[in-house]
Structures are given as structure tokens and as C-alpha cells.
């Protein structure tokens, strides 16, 4: 259960932060909805990157 929470929280965090940045981007520059779409997808990519890193599949960037 602990591992499941760990990986899922990584993925969700990436998507949430991406969506938030996109929403803020749209609010400031009134480019709705393109900022949200682009940053949501980027956030998903970041979330997948987080999961891969924390699962230890890819070598950690820190070279630990």
C-alpha cells in the first residue's frame, strides 16, 4: 500500500501542478484554453517522469 501511494501521489502531483500552471497562464494571458491543454499534457509527462524516477527504473539524475 505504501508503494502504491508513493507512485500515485507522484503522478497526481505532476498533473495537478501542470494544470495549475496552465490555468494561471490562461488567466494572465487570456489564451484559454490552450495554456491549460499544453501544460496539462506537460504535467502528465512530468508526473510520468516522477514515477519512473521514484520507482528507480531510470537512473537517478542525482547519481546517488
Amino acid at each position: 500500500m505504501a508503494r502504491g501511494f508513493r507512485l500515485s501521489s507522484e503522478l497526481v502531483a505532476g498533473v495537478v501542478v501542470g494544470a495549475l500552471i496552465g490555468w494561471g497562464f490562461d488567466r494572465l494571458l487570456s489564451t484559454s484554453p490552450f495554456g491549460l491543454i499544453v501544460f496539462f499534457l506537460l504535467g502528465f509527462a512530468a508526473g510520468v517522469l516522477n514515477v519512473i524516477r521514484s520507482a528507480g527504473v531510470a537512473p537517478d539524475r542525482t547519481g546517488r
Binding site: 501511494f5 501521489s9 507522484e10 502531483a13 495537478v16 501542478v17 506537460l42 509527462a45 512530468a46 516522477n50
Partner: peptide
Amino acid sequence: LIEIISFFSRPISHSVR
């Protein structure tokens, strides 16, 4: 861009876990 989003998602995953 992906790395920056990944960096800002850290406190969220850190606390939610």
C-alpha cells in the same frame, strides 16, 4: 519545462504521501 513542473510538484507529492 517538464523538469520545472516536476520540481514544483515535489512539495505536493512529498506532503500527500
